[in-house]
């Protein structure tokens, strides 16, 4: 238990809360990589998922693609891209984007595809154009599932950004890798605790967002099977 108090000391030491290697800086880097990754992944996966979900064509392709991407080990991609493209920001971001795409893609696709055909039919019958069907009916109704996928992706990215420190980038994983190099176990512990707290906090925030943007009507519909 001694290590825990050492880790606590590390976390409460004012020296670790300032400067280029301080916790705020590392936290910022960690969140920055994650936001960048999520931005790219969202830009790719959401439109694709919406399109396939709306047209209800190519669902099998999406499932296959997501499954294939899911079985790729992120650490392997990270090291491979680094070797092929050299050190820098893009190789790890690319690997993380591939990690984030499957949950967003299948969440978006399955959310939209699961909107009741009768509801879509009703929307068209009322004179909605295809675009209006998508933006006024399918997306709002699928929103909880879409956001669930995004939330899941964000969690994975936040957790996995830890290992970009392995290829000399920043982020909270820096303390883990540096601590490992000098057998400073307390610093490693501090690192993973910070990541866990960040993940829990982010998940809580995203859960709140999910709740806020989900129409109460959908929650009620969910409670009544």
């Amino acid at each position: 238990m001694n290590l825990f108090s050492e880790a606590a000391q590390f976390l409460t030491d004012p020296a670790n809360w300032s400067g280029a290697t301080g916790i705020p800086q590392r936290l910022l880097e960690h969140v920055g990589y994650s936001v960048l990754t999520m931005g790219i992944a969202l830009a790719i996966a959401v439109p694709l998922g919406l399109w396939v979900g709306h047209t209800r064509r190519g669902g099998g392709m999406i499932v296959g693609l997501a499954g294939a991407l899911r079985s790729l080990p992120t650490l392997g991609l990270l090291t491979l891209f680094t070797l092929l493209m050299g050190l820098g920001l893009m190789p790890p971001i690319l690997a993380l984007v591939l990690l984030a795409i499957p949950p967003i893609l299948s969440g978006t696709y399955s959310g939209v595809a699961a909107v009741s055909p009768a509801l879509v039919d009703a929307a068209r019958s009322m004179g909605m154009t295809e675009g209006q069907v998508l933006t006024r009916v399918e997306i709002p109704v699928a929103l909880p599932v879409i956001l669930g996928g995004i939330r899941n992706a964000a969690l994975q990215v936040l957790a996995t950004v830890t290992i970009v420190a392995y290829i000399n980038l920043g982020g909270l994983g820096r303390y883990l890798i540096d601590g490992l190099a000098v057998r400073d176990y307390a610093r490693m512990l501090a690192s993973v605790v910070l990541v866990a707290v960040l993940a829990l906090a982010a998940d809580a925030v995203l859960a709140l967002v999910q709740r806020l943007v989900t129409s109460p009507g959908l929650r009620l519909a969910g409670d009544r099977p």
Partner: peptide, 23 residues
């Protein structure tokens, strides 16, 4: 045009087809 035509008629279906996320 289909959308214009449909808006000019009322349509009621079996499973009400109400938008669940709207009041």
């Amino acid at each position: 045009p289909a959308a214009k035509l449909r808006r000019s008629m009322g349509y009621v279906m079996q499973q009400s087809g109400l938008l669940p996320h709207k009041t």
